[in-house]
Nucleic acid binder design. Structure first.
Length: 221
DNA sequence: ACCCAGGGTCATA
DNA sequence: TATGACCATGGG
């Protein structure tokens, strides 16, 4: 059977639904997508809470703020000067476009290209926004996805972002709830096993994982 | 003290 | 096109 679906089923059975994206509305999801770049989610939550407390979780407020002040609000998310600039670039673009309703009307292909042209929005952040804020059927690729599927021997180590994305999108039903849950499960799995535990002991994907089988043989001797 | 997090940009070769 | 430096906080 299709290994992409098989892995999804195994992860869903082990961890259950993840209820992504954590956050209240589309705009908050977009801000979170920028803030979480190379950053632990708990730090992003702090930053978003500070923005809310300041009444600054708003495109016009962010776009018009003093960079220093914005950076101070988002400080816990790290890279605060970089991200302040990125948030302002994104919000300026967002307002220029006419806000959420205008984005909802635009076809996915051109919208993705337009997002990628915004300073600070790369492939993963663009796809987070498309999938989790706007409900478009795009598959999000991150470092965990690369590592996991390369380890499973299903994709090449050297595959680029677009090739990986196409591999998932072309080999799965193009359903938003599936893409949503799948990426969230990959992240959950990485936190649960690949990070905390050395190697893959107890991994629900062990029976499919060449790397894990050699490890478990070695450790059980 | 060290490693890494739900990346992306920019300068260099 | 392909690397490498850089950005910075907070938890293990």
């Amino acid at each position: 059977m299709n290994p992409r679906l098989a892995v999804f089923r195994a992860l869903l059975e082990r961890y259950g639904p993840q209820h992504w994206w954590p956050g209240e509305g589309p705009f908050e999801v977009m801000v979170g997508a920028v803030l979480t770049q190379n950053t632990a989610w708990e730090n992003v939550e702090r930053a978003i809470a500070r923005l809310k407390a300041a009444g600054a979780l708003d495109a016009r407020v962010i776009a018009a703020s003093e960079p220093r002040r914005l950076a101070e609000w988002i400080r816990p998310a790290g890279y605060f000067n970089v991200k302040a600039r990125r948030l302002q670039a994104f919000c300026a673009w967002y307002l220029e476009r006419g806000g959420l309703e205008a984005l909802r009307r635009q076809p996915t292909e051109t919208l993705r290209a337009d997002l990628l042209a915004v300073h600070g929005i790369g492939p993963e952040t663009a796809d987070d926004i498309l999938l989790y804020a706007l409900g478009r059927p795009v598959f999000v690729i991150d470092a965990y996805t690369r590592r996991l599927f390369a380890r499973l021997g299903l994709v090449g180590e050297d595959w680029g972002y677009e090739r990986l994305r196409a591999w998932f999108e072309d080999g799965l039903p193009r359903e938003v709830p599936l893409f949503n849950e799948y990426h969230a499960l990959i992240v959950r799995h990485a936190k649960e096993h690949c990070r905390k535990r050395p190697r893959c002991a107890g991994c629900p994907l062990a029976s499919r994982c060449p790397a894990d089988q050699s490890v478990s043989r070695a450790s059980s001797e």
